[in-house]
Design a protein around this nucleic acid. Structure first.
Length: 478
DNA sequence: ATTTTTTTTAC
DNA sequence: TAAAAAAAA
């Protein structure tokens, strides 16, 4: 009897290194499905929705070249997947495993399929190593990154990536939603223009980005990643978020760069740093799994009694890039325009919101969730709790970034600030980190009127720092 | 994955 | 006296 397989795509919108796909392609007929889930997973923010729409289009186009197409359905996956499996007469349903609260849905799907006599076949592919593979001396995954990273390294390289199937089964005609009806992309104000220029969602875009990075910025990654004025980041985060490239593919590509001739070879320190960043992604997924409410609850409950400021004006100024601290503002405007900012500036802007404005980290996390194209249910809350100090493994409460010092280090010539805060672009570089220090004459020559064309700092750094240290110290009870 | 203050060291 | 290192937050 001819077999039919259902392949359920989720956060793995790729054909390469896709174990579930490889296995499903062994059937006689194949149907590929994506479900816009309305239950059991965190609803996507605006920027991520834009990315998803483009990634789904890219995946559908790639599948059509193979005689397939991507079937779209929306609703509760626990009902949709078994129903579709029934509809097409599938004997097996394939997917790559995901981790965290979404596992509950997958369990429901598995049980519903079993009742119908259909087998769920699941595979690894979302992380470098599956959560259960990394264990500390207690048998649980280490809750601190350093030992986690040590264990992950000790586990060795993840298995080599596998290729997309070379032979494809036939497909079946199945009704699909129309992507346009999902309204994932902006219409009235089309705010995605800068995103279209900055990104190429989809597996091809991911592959090109990976190669560009491995052949380019990786060589100086350890230093360049700290610089806002250089393209030192890999910019792979949204591709990884939607699984257009697997962390395994990225890991092996970075390691492979060490085999290049000496002249083109990246420094081992840079490769190591980059691999550690990849490991942070695994670490965050472990954290999400251990703390399903990581986006809503402090991991350290002493933060439950911290008197966060409910004030709105400062928060709004932060979201709009109007704090009066040029590097903070540049980064927040960059985020709004391209749906992304480099890691160092995420730390700086998050620190500013939490420590300088005393805003609850959850407000900031939600803003990033809505505006980042790479908004990830594990990474985003993990990193916000890290900056807040409320995470199990996190920065100590007294770690407060100085926005001026950071500006001097990350953007010494002011190129990044000039790009995103053009109203002060004519100021000499020395004042682009702190325009309030320029004399009235220098401000006038640059066409800057503080408080009019560009804000005065909404808080004084020294005062804000002392205020935060006092409040945080009081919270700890010491 | 820091900043600021204090202390030490090196001219 | 200034830079570097250490300590404290």
């Amino acid at each position: 009897m001819a077999s039919t397989a259902l392949l359920w795509f989720r956060d793995d919108l790729r054909l390469g290194d896709n174990a579930a796909l490889r296995a499903a392609a062994g059937a006689d007929a194949l149907v590929c499905l994506y479900v816009l889930e309305e239950e059991g997973v965190r609803p996507l923010g605006g920027a991520s929705q834009w990315w998803l729409a483009n990634s789904l289009r890219a995946l559908d186009a790639a599948l059509r070249e193979k005689g397939q197409k991507l079937i779209l359905r929306s609703g509760n996956a626990a009902e949709i997947v078994p129903a579709l499996a029934d509809e097409i007469g599938a004997s097996e349903v394939f997917w790559n495993r995901r981790y965290g609260p979404a596992e509950k849905i997958d369990g429901q799907v598995t049980r519903a399929l079993k009742q119908r006599g259909i087998e769920a076949k699941t595979f690894a592919g979302a992380l470098l190593h599956e959560p259960d593979a990394i264990k500390g001396s207690t048998g649980a995954a280490p809750k601190i990154f350093a030992p986690f990273w040590k264990r992950l390294r000790a586990a060795g390289d993840p298995p080599a990536p596998i290729r997309a199937p070379s032979k494809w089964p036939s497909t079946k005609r199945v009704a699909s939603d129309d992507l346009a009806d999902w309204s994932l992309e902006p219409t009235k104000p089309d705010w995605a223009g800068d995103m279209r220029d900055a990104w190429a969602p989809g597996e091809d875009g991911a592959r090109k980005r990976l190669h560009a990075f491995v052949d380019g910025a990786l060589s100086t990654y350890a230093d360049s990643r700290e610089r806002a004025d250089r393209d030192g980041s890999s910019r792979l985060s949204p591709h990884l978020r939607f699984g257009e490239v697997s962390p395994t593919q990225v890991w092996h590509a970075a390691k492979h760069a060490l085999d290049a001739p000496a002249k083109e070879r990246p420094s081992p320190a840079s490769v190591d740093k980059f691999l550690a960043e990849l490991a942070w992604r695994d670490f965050a997924h472990h954290q999400l799994r251990a703390y399903p409410k990581i986006a809503d609850e402090n991991m350290r409950d002493q933060f439950d009694r911290f008197p966060w400021s409910e004030e709105r004006k400062g928060f709004t100024a932060w979201t709009r890039g109007q704090t009066g601290y040029p590097l903070v503002d540049a980064a927040m405007r960059h985020l709004w325009a391209e749906g992304w900012m480099p890691n160092r500036l995420r730390m700086l802007t998050a620190s500013f919101l939490i420590k300088h404005l005393l805003s609850d980290w959850r407000r900031g996390e939600k803003w990033f969730w809505d505006t980042l194209v790479d908004a990830d249910p594990a990474n985003n809350p993990t990193n916000w709790q890290w900056v807040a100090g409320s995470g199990i493994d996190s920065a100590p409460y007294f770690r407060i970034f100085n926005p001026v010092t950071q500006s001097e280090k990350a953007d010494p010539d002011g190129d990044y600030v000039r790009k995103w805060v053009p109203e002060i672009a004519k100021l000499p570089a020395q004042f682009l980190t702190a325009p309030w220090e320029a004399s009235p004459m220098e401000l006038e020559e640059a066409g800057v009127r503080l408080g009019k064309t560009y804000p005065e700092p909404i808080v004084d750094h020294k005062e804000a720092r002392e205020r935060a240290l006092g409040a945080l110290k009081k919270m700890t009870g010491k």
